[in-house]
Design a protein around this nucleic acid. Sequence first.
DNA 1: CCAATTATTTAGTGATCGACACAGAAATGG
DNA 2: CCATTTCTGTGTCGATCACTAAATAATTGG
Lengths: 206, 206
Amino acid sequence: MAERGRPRNFDKDAALARAMEVFWLKGYEGASMADLTSAMGIASPSLYAAFGSKEDLFRKALDYYVASEGGLIWGAVTETHTAHQAVETFLMQTARVFTRRSRPPGCLVVLSALHPNEHSETVRRELVQRRAQAVTELRERLRRGVERGEISPAADLDAIAKYYITVQQGMSIQARDGATRKQLEQIAAAALAAWGPLTAPTPTAH
Amino acid sequence: MAERGRPRNFDKDAALARAMEVFWLKGYEGASMADLTSAMGIASPSLYAAFGSKEDLFRKALDYYVASEGGLIWGAVTETHTAHQAVETFLMQTARVFTRRSRPPGCLVVLSALHPNEHSETVRRELVQRRAQAVTELRERLRRGVERGEISPAADLDAIAKYYITVQQGMSIQARDGATRKQLEQIAAAALAAWGPLTAPTPTAH
DNA sequence: CCAATTATTTAGTGATCGACACAGAAATGG
DNA sequence: CCATTTCTGTGTCGATCACTAAATAATTGG
């Protein structure tokens, strides 16, 4: 049973992947419909018929990004045994994923819409929420480290999670500025040097 | 001796300060001429006569920002005695300056132009350069810490400087997402927890 | 074959972008 | 007073923005 009517003559998933790359590179506002249709190889009426609107397309591209690119980082994190390994993997995978050739540097979730704007405010809020979700996921991973006796119960898990997410977000800027994978790994290693003091029974020495 | 011709009807410095706030909040591309003229209280021909073009205006606003807002951070840093105090002051002043009421959150230098774009490419490159300059300045401050015997000669000063600048850049994102001053200070404190391991004679334990 | 349905193509829509032409207003120099 | 200079207000330029109406093409159901 094929669909009724004229069949679409482009691959919807492939077009979405192209759109994701354009948003990733240029940001939500910075990606024009001309940029998108050109990269996707279709005319704008086809885009609107298939995806709804620019904002709808972005949200689908965002889901696609979180599933594919985000999965590369968080998938590896879930395979770790200790909380320390989880954070180390999180930052090292970040260094790798943020610096792949022929992929835009940095993170789409972090970079796509940082400024308040009438036309992109709902998109911006969605991204703020996704960034907060990353903190929650990392904090949950740390909590299991406390249960295993790996992290001091006195440790401020929310602060630690926010700290490492903040480092990752800074790495997006660094990647955009042309940092190499090795440089990002050095930054990650420096951030990991705080692990001992942060998770030890006596958390911070003033 | 007053100037020849009709005198300017507005305060140029005050208008520049308004323009800086608009660019700071909305970014370079996101700040429209309508936004700027409205905030500056002048019509566009007056803006072009006084400042040249949108890009010229941005560069003047950028200089103004670095001198005023940047001075709040780096001025305090230069008054410190130890390298550790310098980095601590750098991050704590950042937490304060990024979260002042009725000022846009985060840093203009970090947030204004992150995406490549035909119309803003020269501005973007200027900002990349300024961010690299921050690394250089911090690294230079660390170097004096080595001379004082405060930091191990084996420490990788460039990596340490890049690390703390990266944390500050991540704090710009966090500030944009609504982080409070206290939350940014907790992030700063967590980042400072790495200081001991990073600067001790045995820098990183693998 | 025909009707119904869906997609693509062509050619635009009004709105907004940064920038400016032009004329009038407000000052100085003589 | 007049000429010169500089700034301001009105209006608008061509380009680009996201988006779409209308006609045509390609498929299925009967």
